[in-house]
Write a protein that binds this DNA or RNA. Structure first.
Length: 529
RNA sequence: CCCCCCGUAGCACAAUGGAUAGUGCAGGGCUCUUCUAAGGCCUUGAUGUGGGUUCGAUUCCUACCGGGGGGACCA
């Protein structure tokens, strides 16, 4: 990528070992890339930043690198780089040649087998907005890592056994009056609907709430899968069953045996504990209760062990804000089972606003808006773009009243419309004979669009490194803006043949970049709107 | 009481310690005889408060003020 060429130049002319970062200045007049490296060097060299910047800028410029036309120092000590038009023209050729592979990188090794676990909502009812937020994040993060060369598995871990399934069974029984209702049971409409529809099963299994819960959970999981895959276009490679893949395969016992062998457990008050404090947790955690039951935590440790034994070198687990207290212990367990390259990302809550006030939602009480409802209401592309625009640690407000109105004004359409316009140009232009002379692409708007196209690889590489996928939506808007401006000011059809051919090549390059970006974002690339 | 996250314009969100704090929506004004006006151009408007570190702070530290979420031998 072009940014790396600039980076190498700076490193060559700065003292070796200098950490250099490049950014894209807001103001295009300041160049394509900028570095603040002179500020850092100023302390070491005891010279003014501007003096150092001027020296490096001059050295870089005089090195006559094909990547840049010039480097200039700017007060109080920035160095700004202007890419050479020829380098950008060549990048357009590279786009045309690479096609759908443009933007692929190898910043992650193909030997890196990484699992991204996300959503993993208990199948005790429909998905919440928070589940959906994690769903979009995980889906796109997996795409980004795959694009960067890693071997990725997208996993949904299904908690299909244990207390919450038992509770679900009891909730169904309570719904038909077989057992008394109480505070701890699930109350939503979905509970009574399922119970009413399956009266015979409920009655038949009235003595076995766990089995009843399992049956209902199987049905709820089908609904969850439909919402994720059909509605929201979130795909998984594996739905891992806690019961079948972890408990039945002995991973719970294996994890416990492993911990005991490592000497990191102890008995206290009848329970078995794991010394998670040794790994940074604020208290030790119970693995086996005094009643002899394995905890959810032990099963999770078993799950991490299973993941490790299936050959994964790394795992990224995306959890909701209700799992904050869980991060330290799960990281401790990951380390103890030997999956040290483990990362937990927490997505913050989604607040629902209706009528100007926050709506308190509770899955247990059943008074919540489901993810599926929202996706149906605003559309998969708009919902995706909306959720993905926000950094995961940011608390976000979702205004239901404005959701549909907003959906028509969603920035996703701005980006898609640019793509539609590009397709229309190509259709209208038809075939233009001759090899395009790209040096004719010399207006500011040609150049600005070309520069944005060339940034796809760096944007994707950055996201793969720091997981900040919300920057992809920002880039989509920036790219679309560059295209719209180009479209308004410059023409293809009607220009002299040589220029028309060059512009057509630029439009075709734009189509490739839009398609690659949209594919990774999981949004559609419509040819008409 | 302790821990984590957040506080940026009327609203929803951006901003690897850098330059004149960006984007969309909303508001005001222009703009279709040329490839789709879901567009383009111009414009109004913001860093919760007080200290500190720094050449430079929305960003780091600290105290406060707001908001959200955690703190089970539940999941």
């Amino acid at each position: 990528m072009l940014r790396d060429e600039v980076l190498k130049l700076v490193q060559k002319h700065a003292p070796k070992g200098t950490a250099v970062t490049l950014s894209v200045p807001e103001d295009a007049r300041l160049g394509h890339y900028s570095t603040n490296v002179a500020f850092a060097l100023s302390k070491i060299e005891k010279k003014s930043p501007l003096e150092i910047a001027e020296r490096i800028a001059s050295d870089v410029t005089s090195s006559k690198s094909p990547a840049i036309s010039r480097a200039v120092a700017a007060a109080p000590g920035f160095i700004n780089f202007f890419l050479a038009p020829k380098a950008l023209h060549e990048e357009l050729n590279a786009i045309a040649k690479a096609k759908k592979n443009y933007g692929r990188s190898k910043v992650k090794s193909s030997k890196l087998k990484v699992q991204v676990e996300f959503v993993s909502a208990n199948p005790t009812g429909p998905l919440t907005l928070a589940n959906g937020r994690g769903g979009f994040l995980g889906d796109v993060l997996a795409n980004v890592l795959e694009n960067a060369g890693a071997a990725v598995e997208r996993e949904y871990y299904v908690n299909d056994t244990g207390n919450q399934i038992f509770t679900l069974g009891k909730s169904l029984l309570a719904s038909l009056g077989f057992v008394p209702d109480d505070e701890t049971l699930y109350k939503g409409e979905y509970v009574s609907e399922w119970a009413a529809k399956h009266k015979k099963d409920v009655e038949k299994m009235r003595k076995d709430p766990a089995k009843l819960g399992e049956k209902a959970a199987g049905d709820f999981l089908k609904l969850i899968k439909r919402a994720l895959e059909k509605e929201a276009h979130i795909k998984f490679d594996r739905y891992t069953s806690e019961k079948k893949n972890i408990h039945a395969k002995g991973y719970v016992k294996k994890a416990l045996a492993l911990f005991k062998k490592k000497g990191v457990t102890y008995e206290k008050e009848g329970a078995t504990w794991l010394k998670t404090t040794a790994e940074g947790d604020d208290k030790d955690r119970v693995l086996v209760t005094g009643g002899g039951f394995p905890t959810y935590f032990l099963a999770d440790a078993g799950h991490y062990l299973e993941t490790k034994e299936r050959g994964f070198k790394a795992k990224i687990n995306i959890l909701g804000p209700d799992h904050y207290g869980y991060v330290a212990r799960i990281q401790a367990a990951a380390k103890l089972v030997g999956l040290a390259n483990s990362k937990v990302l927490i997505t913050q809550a989604v607040r629902l606003i209706r009528g100007g006030a926050e709506v308190k939602m509770s899955k247990r009480k059943g008074n919540f808006v489901t993810f599926e409802e929202v996706v149906e209401e605003v559309g998969a592309d708009a919902a995706r773009f909306f959720f993905l625009s926000v950094a995961p640690e940011s608390h976000m407000d979702f205004n239901l009243d404005l959701a549909k109105e907003r959906s028509n004004k969603n920035p996703v359409y701005y980006a898609q419309y640019a793509y539609v316009r590009a397709k229309a140009v190509v259709a209208k232009a038809g075939k233009i004979a001759g090899k395009p002379d790209l040096s004719l692409l010399n207006t500011p708007d040609d150049a600005a669009l070309l520069f944005q196209l060339s940034r796809l690889p760096e944007v994707l590489a950055d996201a793969a490194n720091d997981y900040a996928v919300h920057r992809l939506t920002q880039y989509a808007s920036t790219l679309a803006r560059a295209f719209h401006t180009f479209y308004e000011k410059e023409h293809v059809v009607g220009e002299a043949p040589a220029l028309a051919a060059a512009r057509l090549a630029l439009v075709k390059g734009s189509i490739i970049v839009f398609e690659n970006l949209f594919r990774i974002l999981g949004i559609s690339a419509p040819s008409k709107m």
